[in-house]
Design a protein around this nucleic acid. Structure first.
Lengths: 201, 201
DNA sequence: CGTCGCTGACTGACCGTTCAGTCAGGACCG
DNA sequence: CGGTCCTGACTGAACGGTCAGTCAGCGACG
């Protein structure tokens, strides 16, 4: 088996283990078992557990970059809507909640691990950049009011991320749904230029 | 020394240890050392580490209840403003960031520990209830538009909590400041009834 | 063609450390 | 004397990491 195939298997095993046990319960032995490999092999490919996890975050991030590139040609209102909607977690999406929970644990560890937080900041910039570009496009096309792009993007992301965090940590099933849709309501009156105003220019 | 005094000392030591090492790095020995007591004593007062932490969360919550009761007689706009402002973390408030980081780790563990998440849900309800009462008061007095109180409260809390989470985990110093003040801007146009509209009724 | 040398992927046994929890006992106090 | 508060020495399990060694494949060379 090539090194790359093994790498992919280990990443998948790490994902599974993380969903199942969470970050705190994550052990090298567990990952190895799920990959059908030995613990030593993990250390053969990655010096330490932390190295493996950094690699895992990179893996996630590249995955995420691919996924975020889609729906680039829709109108800005629609893009913003589907972006926000994207954060809603259905009650039945168990593994998604589990994964984001593990990710939250990992994010919290970023404060103690420079390599982690570097990766996390990169993902934050990617996320904010995406929303900023949607906002800029909307402002240019006249669909949105001329708001502070950076502040608005940070605000939107904080909101949807906060809703997700609370849904997951409080074990409720309604938080993301309620907050994201409420946010869209607010955006409609606060950000979107109504059709009346739009004609009269 | 009475049992109660010891309890308080242990809670304080737990707080200090949590700020210093985070939840993952938290050990019974560390707490005991900081309290100037033996590890065995902790087990004398609390059967397990988890029990101690549940007790700690209860302790926090009662603390929090006391603090939230203040400024009840200010006008609703002002109460809401100071509530949101309350979440801004200055760059120099190191221990506050450290504490909230540990709390975030603890919150993430709530998903694996029913006793934890019960406490956390109680604190969420307290928080939401506070904002809801501010909103209801403002709507009644005509200071706020007649919005959906539950959804708006959840949304505000998700926003400020999300900003805090990102500031802490990404190790930035601007997130809460930028988001909270932007939120206040939005609230001003979206929620507050302007003086013009207020007179003409 | 065969075999020799070498490498990359992989394993199992093992080690040192850390840590929650136990237990027998001691001091002080009413 | 009995109960409450407290200690130090200890145990067992879990876990990250190490290390010597196996094995399949492959290129080079006679």
């Amino acid at each position: 088996m090539t090194s790359e195939e093994t790498h992919d298997e280990i990443m998948q095993a790490t994902y599974d283990a993380l969903c199942d046990r969470g970050y705190v319960g994550l052990t090298m032995a567990d990952i190895a078992d799920r990959a059908g490999k030995s613990k030593s092999l993990l250390h053969y490919h990655y010096d330490t557990k932390a190295d493996l996890l950094v690699s895992f975050i990179e893996h996630l991030l590249s995955d995420f970059e691919e996924r975020i590139a889609v729906t680039e040609d829709a109108p800005p209102e629609e893009r913003l809507l589907s972006f926000v909607e994207w954060f809603v977690i259905d009650p039945d999406e168990d593994d998604r909640a589990a994964f984001h929970l593990a990710l939250l644990e990992l994010r919290a560890q970023g404060a103690f691990n420079e390599a982690f937080s570097e990766q996390l900041r990169a993902s934050d910039e990617l996320l904010r950049g995406t929303v900023e570009s949607i906002l800029r496009e909307g402002i240019e096309s006249g669909a949105f009011r001329d708001v502070d792009v950076e502040a608005t993007a940070a605000w939107i992301i904080a909101t949807v991320d906060g809703a997700r965090t609370r849904q997951i940590t409080l074990r409720t099933d309604w938080y993301t749904d309620a907050v994201c849709h409420h946010l869209l309501d607010v955006l409609e009156t606060w950000l979107f230029v109504s059709n009346d105003d739009r004609g009269g220019h």
